[in-house]
């Protein structure tokens, strides 16, 4: 059943509406387990569009296997998805820095609060993000801060390639995931692919993981395809490669591929002069799990990440 959980009037004949599809085939819903799949907080991250579709499609194909509730929120930032804008189009603010929101705040803070209220009571929330529009990522769960330990058993079931513990970015307390975890709703962030696109094999991999978790939680009784165990990594095992010069980046290696020390990853070139400004090589052996796709670079831009110490 599709419901509008928050709506606000826009100036001319339109509402900004956040919708949720509740999939449930039981009469009495009170004691049922509940999983939420949330996406589209950042409007340029569209991998979650396929994941939401595929979860809903597989459930609709076999409603008899669903013994709990699955809530699907494909677009928390519907205007952003419409405009391929990471931020909220009206204010330019990052919705994922506004949680838990406030009933007394401005319009978007009220919407953030409504989303939180709707998710309270969920047994597991999966917040699907793509990578940004700049780099490609393999399917991964990122765990950080005080909730990492509690979420690890769930994360291991997600059929991702990597669980990245304590991801370098400081724990942003105003994210949906952090706010929900603080309020007792176990939430994990899944990240995959690249902004403004859909990688269906990666999407299917994560969807298999979602059904695997639901199976373990007793919400899904259907058969689950075989899943893999992820590599678990901490920050110390991730080698960041950043640009030290401005120019145009050309990848010269394959994403999601093992590289050896000294192997060429890409080049930074000067289109005007037809010259290579830098050759960027791997500093360590490992899995090239992040690779830049977006060409224009400044000093400091992320070009690649290598996961080392994998057995």
């Amino acid at each position: 059943m599709i419901e509008t959980i928050a709506s606000l009037e826009l100036p001319v004949g339109e509402h900004l509406a956040i919708r949720r599809n509740r999939l449930c085939y039981k009469e009495d819903t009170k004691s049922l387990g509940r999983v939420a799949v949330v996406s589209g907080t950042h409007g340029d991250e569209l991998e979650g569009q396929y994941i939401c579709y595929e979860v809903a499609r597989r459930i609709a194909a076999h409603p008899e296997y669903l013994t709990g509730i699955v809530d699907i929120y494909p677009a928390l930032n519907p205007l952003g998805v419409d405009l391929a804008s990471k931020a909220l189009p009206i204010t330019g603010m990052d919705l994922n820095r506004m949680f838990p929101g406030s009933r007394e705040g401005n319009a978007m803070e009220q919407i953030a609060a409504a989303v939180m209220e709707d998710l309270i009571g969920t047994d597991l929330c999966i917040d699907v993000h793509s990578s940004d529009i700049f780099v490609q990522e393999i399917p991964q769960v990122r765990l950080s801060g005080e909730f990492a330990g509690r979420m690890l058993p769930f994360a291991k079931l997600m059929n991702v390639d990597v669980i990245w513990m304590n991801a370098t970015a400081t724990v942003h307390e105003a994210t949906l995931a952090h706010s929900l975890n603080t309020m007792g709703v176990p939430t994990m962030v899944v990240e995959l692919g690249q902004g403004n696109s859909i990688n269906m094999p990666y999407g299917n991999q994560v969807v298999d993981g979602i059904f695997n978790v639901m199976h373990e939680m007793g919400i899904w009784t259907g058969e689950v395809p075989p899943t893999q165990l992820p590599a678990i990594s901490s920050d110390g095992k991730v080698e960041f490669i950043r640009s030290d010069v401005e120019g145009i980046f050309l990848p010269r290696n394959k994403h999601n591929h093992f590289v050896c020390v000294g192997e060429l990853i890409g080049e930074i070139v000067d289109p005007m002069a037809g010259q290579v400004k830098r050759q960027v090589a791997a500093g360590k052996d490992g899995l090239l799990f992040t690779l830049r796709n977006y060409p224009v670079v400044y000093e400091g831009d992320l070009l690649a990440r290598i996961l080392t110490g994998i057995v």
Binding site: K86, A87, G92, R97, D132, F134, R242, Y294, V296, Y298, E299, G300, D301, L302
Partner: peptide, 24 residues
């Protein structure tokens, strides 16, 4: 905001000398 990835410089402090340009 700053750059193609739209960073708010007044949310990027204290920064560091090795990360993204806004941090530098």
């Amino acid at each position: 905001f700053y750059g193609v990835d739209n960073v708010d410089l007044n949310r990027a402090f204290p920064g560091n000398s090795y990360g993204e340009q806004d941090r530098r």
